[in-house]
Amino acid sequence: MSEHVDSVKTYVLVFVALIALTIITTAVAFVNLGPFSVVAALTIATGKMLLVALFFMHLRHSTPLTRLVVLGGLVWLGILLVLTFADFATRAWIGVPGR
């Protein structure tokens, strides 16, 4: 078994980073950043997601096939979001009846 066992220290450091990011995202929400508040919130959330996925879910040490499958899943999610918004965001442009 080529099992990688990370040290407790690594996990605790990742945990501390996650807590810090939670505090930051909560604090930033009270600041008026205009349309960028969503961007800030999602950037921080994605950073936290990556920390959890890479360290806690061991994607750092996983096989290339597993990584490819995970990436593929995210691409499908991207298709779901992008294609739906290609519709919703552009409907008003040409005045579809019943919009």
Binding site: T22, T25, T26, S37, A41, I44, A45
Partner: peptide
């Protein structure tokens, strides 16, 4: 991690 900012932290 995504639900928290999206539901609780809108503007």
């Amino acid at each position: 991690i995504y639900l928290f900012p999206l539901l609780y932290l809108i503007d």
